[in-house]
Design a protein around this nucleic acid. Structure first.
Lengths: 243, 243
DNA sequence: CAGTGGTCTAGACCACGCG
DNA sequence: GCGTGGTCTAGACCACTGT
């Protein structure tokens, strides 16, 4: 009854979790594994797909299947969500940013509550943990609220570091919508993950105390690398109680 | 360059989004579609897998492939997360609950901060929107905090409705950890979703004002049906600022 | 029973990485 | 060039649904 691909997946998973295959190790080639388990390559590949979905195995075209390094889950902290400083300090996070000027269109007008065509700045931010891409963020800010440093000729590295700090003025209200989905082909190749691995997508909208939206961010994290944590305390409960 | 399965997926997706195929419609059989697109059945099935991952198509063994009803996304509200009452009122949500007594083991002892073997009550809660399962929750409560109604012979329906309200005493602190992943085979069959569709998994721990954990909940939602929304206001920001 | 999807085979050929 | 994974074929056989 249990399909062969699940039996094979279980066997390989056991070898990984018990340490017979360590992080970074290359698995035998797919044809070798297919021979060993006496199945066709298609069946073997579907077994590996299970492990990819669990984030245990990474496939690299032309090189092989590799056991992923144990995932140090990084915590995204809601509220003013950047990365948890404690975690971020532990981890070598490099960030690249591409800055683009563009007019508001479509969903962005609704998210930012601005008119169609209103000038925006987009920051396409890609963070790396060591070699592998770790998260993708598209951040939109009204042009007049964009820090001048970001628009000057200074290196984007400067802005990148600044972007981890709380903006000025600080947001009075932050709404975050969290969803789970599969990555788009674009996102999958940018993050170098398989399209079978779920991603955590967070849409974060921050407003100042006048209700003006000062930033909208579309964040994408590989599901096996990031958890999002939200904490609420009684002050919030009281407010929500008479909703 | 673009693979055939993506071309076929795009074509079928267009037929669905433009209304040429409506919600509930059955697609032609896989062999008929394979003939039409001049591909093998394996290729055609991989094209359908793309649409399943997007939640557009539901496969039913022995019957066919069906266009899913447009997803009224239901909003899970963080903080004291039940379902948004406004949304829940719109939707015919039925709930079944299975109640089990069990001792704390493994992860549960850490989550609930109780000793190994400490008595717990588990509520396995499955909610339906019309015919199709909508969410799966495993809720753990220390035995001495379990409402007596839940342990009596009353119908589980009573408890089901009660479980949507805020418990007494109300939690002083709620921590929610959100992650995106693929469903386990068990979860997929319980929720009647494909294993290729991402789920939103939320671990919610609620404590009273003495710090005692009064409830731990493991919630699983199909990614295409539920978004989780978290809102924070300046009072929270100030607290987090001097972290 | 007939018709559907689910799993699997034993290949072929293509695209990528590296020496 | 060689070995790797990526895509695809043209079937076979099994499992589920409804008549």
């Amino acid at each position: 009854m249990t399909s062969r691909r699940l039996i094979i997946a279980d066997d390989l998973r056991r070898q990984i979790t018990t340490g017979r295959l360590g992080p970074g190790d290359r698995l035998p080639s797919e044809s070798a594994l297919a021979d060993r388990y006496k199945v066709s390559t298609a069946t073997l590949r579907s077994a590996l797909a299970v492990l990819q979905g669990e984030g245990l195995v990474e496939k690299i075209h032309g090189k092989g299947n590799f056991v992923r390094r144990p995932l140090r889950k990084i915590t995204y902290v809601g509220g003013w969500g950047t990365l948890d400083p404690r975690t971020a300090a532990d981890v070598d996070l490099r960030v690249t940013v591409r800055t683009t000027a563009l007019p508001a269109r479509g969903h962005l007008t609704a998210l930012l509550k601005v008119d169609d065509g209103s000038p925006l700045t987009e920051f396409l931010r890609l963070s790396y943990e060591g070699e592998s891409p770790h998260s993708l963020a598209r951040v939109y800010v009204p042009r007049d609220l964009t820090p001048t440093t970001a628009l000057s000729n200074r290196s984007s590295r400067t802005w990148a570091e600044a972007s981890f700090s709380v903006p000025d003025p600080p947001p009075a209200e932050v709404h975050e919508t969290v969803s789970a989905r599969l990555p788009t082909p674009d996102e999958a190749s940018t993050l170098r993950i398989n399209t079978a691995l779920a991603v955590l997508a967070i849409t974060r909208v921050a407003a100042d105390n006048t209700g003006r939206v000062i930033e909208a961010a579309l964040l994408v994290f590989p599901g096996d690398r990031v958890d999002a944590v939200f904490s609420t305390h009684h002050v919030i409960e009281e407010r929500q109680a008479h909703r």
